[in-house]
Amino acid sequence: MLRSRSQVRILWTLLAAAVGLVFILPAAWMFLGAFRPGNAVIDAVTPLSWNTFWPDVWTLDNFVQMLGPLDFGRALINSLIVVVVSVIVGVAVSALAAYGFSVVEFRGREIVFGLVVVGFLIPFESIAVPLAQIFNDAGLNNTYIGLILPGIGSGLAIFYLRQHFLGIPASIREAALIDGAGEFSILRRMYLPLSTPALANAALIIFLSQWMAYLWPLLIAPDPALQVAPIALSKTFTLQTSNFGQNFAGALMISLIPAIIMFVLQMFSKQSIAEAADK
């Protein structure tokens, strides 16, 4: 008794749908909860009905409260400042180092690169607490620089870009050197334009790690004026209250902003590839 191919296909599809629903339902419940009156999140649970999941009353009040009196907008702006500066400086540092460790030849390069690899093998979180003490002693607590610095040293971004640069033929650089070009202008005029997608990925690595950072900002910037979004969100939350709409609104905002930026970046990088193909 062989079942037909399409029957098998439908069975597998149903299984995939069930798995997909297990993952998406809690997220959907959270995102929808951002648009209902705060107390409705728990009040609508009993009796269990369609209304538990889907709001009967829709409101933007949670967002108004979060961005107004609860000052979450300021936290979002702090996060954006930290992320943008980290990405720009971090990509620049990583590209320079990647070029230095892949293209420029100098004595002891492999040893120095080995040191960098070993150093970055130490996961950041595991040394975050002693690092915070060092930063405190240096007076970097409650400063943007203190928040930004760990984000610009990304071993992953360096390795990733180095790997990409190694794939660019060395003859390009040698020809330019003989023509009298300096190393910096070769990096800027030849290697970087050839690496747009790799640079976008390096930017993404730095972006996400800084945007989602929690432990580090908690340690280094307790000043409310410097609070980043994840810290501000956790401050609005206690298990004892029953007004959760605002928490959901905050969670929705910090989840959506990277998604939107990623989407824009993706369009941007696709466009630049298309432009490059035109030339």
């Binding site: 540092v93 120095v112 150093g119 970055f120 130490i122």
Partner: peptide, 19 residues
């Protein structure tokens, strides 16, 4: 080229681990 990365690795990883 490699100076900034080396300073960062020393300050952000090796120093706190040593500390």
């Amino acid at each position: 080229f490699v100076g900034p990365a080396i300073v960062l690795i020393v300050v952000l990883r090796l120093m706190p681990f040593g500390q």
